[in-house]
Design a binder for these strands. Structure first.
Lengths: 158, 158
DNA sequence: TATTGTTATACTCTATAACTATA
DNA sequence: TATAGTTATAGAGTATAACAATA
């Protein structure tokens, strides 16, 4: 939505800037064959032994979305599913050697995209921007208002 | 995506804050039966005589999305399609009396949601936040990187 | 009984294509 | 030939339900 008047339209400012930054990030990561989600999973899986559900929560995605993301990472040879030694239901996501290299590169890309954006601002403005957003994200804009759940029919038996 | 390290994760900050603000806005406008798009169309249509396509451009939506949005506004008795006096293909979107009242109320709601967010910050931080976002939106984050177009088959003849 | 991961699929959203009327 | 608006629908994205294995 475009700004309608002279008042600051915070919705437009946040929507537009986050959308454009997201497209820049997607384009930059696509050059090494990654999506933002794949990058996110790689980085978190590298930090410590984590199951799919733990990684899903960290990346704020559904467990079924994690399945698809992991399929892509496995197919690219960047990660593997390994049985957990303590819970035979769970799978630990192990990052391969190649995956670790790619993650290092993708983190540089992510940092670069962020630096380019923040670097386009006067230094003090960039600092305050980050501080203000952090305050919002941990305060007034911490948790989404959940919409009323749409009804969902049972799926066809097969 | 959650922040992965100690560096400021601008993507997360913008995505999260814009998403939560959007849900707050949707919930607040839903109380008077509006979506953000409906509000956007009402406000712009009130400013001057505008066609559907002009309103679609202002609200950054497709003309087909505008059709759906206008259907909703008409059904709610808030706006009407009127033939343009200068172009018999085009329709002017006229806001009804009731629509004008609702638009006034919805603008108050929008302003209120924005004020609540900005008001949760120290005054100077809020000012710099808006200034910085404005600079990004008109500068480094002005235009989205467009993704390669997905192929699209011809639609079934009927 | 509850949880992990999987598959199948329903749903939403939005854009594309084709069409009619008009320019 | 090009444009405004409409309809139908394709496609992406994602979440829900059901299920098997295990806790």
């Amino acid at each position: 939505m475009a700004p309608s008047r002279d008042e600051p339209d915070l919705s437009f400012l946040l929507d537009h800037s986050s959308h454009v930054l997201r497209t820049q990030m997607a384009a930059a990561l696509a050059e090494i064959g990654l999506t933002a989600r794949m990058h996110c999973v790689l980085v978190h899986a590298l930090q410590e032994e984590r199951t799919q559900i733990q990684l899903a929560e960290l990346g704020d995605m559904d467990k079924t979305t994690m399945v698809v993301t992991l399929d892509a990472l496995e197919q690219a040879g960047l990660a593997e599913r390994r049985p957990s030694s303590t819970d035979r239901r769970a799978r630990i996501v192990a990052v391969t050697e190649k995956g670790a290299q790619v993650a290092k590169r993708s983190q540089e890309i992510v940092d670069g995209v962020h630096r380019a954006a923040l670097g386009s601002l006067p230094e003090e403005e960039a600092e305050v921007l980050v501080r203000a957003l952090n305050r919002l994200v941990t305060g007034h804009l911490a948790t989404a208002v959940e919409a009323p759940q749409p009804v969902r029919r049972a799926r066809q038996r097969g």
